[in-house]
Simulated scan of single mutants.
Amino acid sequence: MLGRGTWSLAAAMTAICVVLIGPSTPGGALVAEPLPPGAAEDVIPNRVMTWNICNPCGRSGHDLGLAAEIATYAPQVVGLQEACARDVDRVRDHLEALYGLVYRVEYGMVQQNWSRCGGLPWSPGAFGQAILSAAPMTDRVNVEYPDGGSEDRGYMAVTTTVGGRSVRVFNTHLAERRQEPVRARQIGVLAAEVARHDRAIVLGDFNAVPDSQELAGMWALAADTDPRCRPLAAGACEPTTEWQSKFDYVFLRGITPLTHRVRPSPHSDHYMLHTDLSPS
């Protein structure tokens, strides 16, 4: 594989060509957004990220911006919520073409939604969850919760490699706020499957703050990546949304976290949450 420096040079040359000779395709040539100082040089093999990417957002170049944000931190695994399959395909392609990062994708779509994901009214785009992984993924399952609340919701799971070890990775998006009983039932479905695995990573937007009663089923099985964040210490939990609530989690079962970061982004009303995990 070409090094990140080579890919950065290629992206810069693409930008120069756009200025000198104009777009090379009817839709315009793609230009990589510059990454900030300190951006990852390559995929970080023990890093995982969860991100509700906001949909619909109505911003021009949304998929390019998402790709740049992911490339900055370059996790081994990324769990996306509120994802349209077409958008995720473009993000994956941008990551490879513009930043030299090769990811595989598995989908956990729960509905076909024209208003969110476009397409023709009789052939709307798929909407739900997705997992990007630099390593191969196997044994994908996609489960729609029996009761999604005001909108269909579900979870997906794959087996992949993080930090050189095999692990079961879940990605979920629970019912919207003010639907506590629905979320409690959804967590019951999810927790029953997580409990079957000694080592598991559960990514997602749970739409619930840490001391919410409905989260008890997850806290009984796993710990949040932030060692300070617990139900009885909810005030110490770093917010993950623009409205200063913690709704997004990386729950770990049988796995020890090293560090974690929460990063705001102009491309979503949820922040990116990524964590580096101990390989042992």
Rank of each mutant, 00 (worst) to 15 (best):
R4V: 05
R4E: 06
W7N: 01
S8N: 00
A10K: 02
M13D: 00
A15S: 01
V18G: 00
L20E: 00
L20F: 01
I21C: 00
S24E: 00
G28S: 01
L30C: 07
G38N: 03
A39Y: 10
A39H: 11
D42C: 10
I44N: 07
N46I: 03
R47Y: 02
M49T: 12
W51P: 12
N52P: 08
L66T: 04
A67Y: 03
I70D: 08
A71P: 04
A74H: 02
V78N: 06
Q81A: 10
E82N: 02
A83G: 03
A83Q: 03
C84G: 02
R86S: 08
R92S: 06
L101M: 08
E106I: 11
Y107D: 04
Q112I: 08
S115N: 15
C117L: 05
P121N: 07
A126S: 08
F127C: 04
A134S: 09
A135H: 10
T138W: 09
G148S: 08
R153A: 04
A157W: 15
T161I: 07
G163N: 06
R165I: 06
F170W: 15
F170Y: 15
H173P: 12
H173K: 13
R177I: 06
P181G: 05
P181W: 13
R185T: 13
R185A: 15
I187V: 15
G188E: 14
L190M: 11
E193K: 08
E193M: 10
E193P: 08
H197Q: 07
D198A: 09
D205N: 06
L215H: 13
A216N: 10
W219R: 07
W219H: 06
T225N: 11
T225I: 15
R230T: 15
L232Y: 15
T241F: 12
W243D: 00
F247G: 09
D248K: 09
L258G: 06
P264G: 02
H267K: 03
H267T: 05
M272D: 12
S278K: 10
S280E: 14
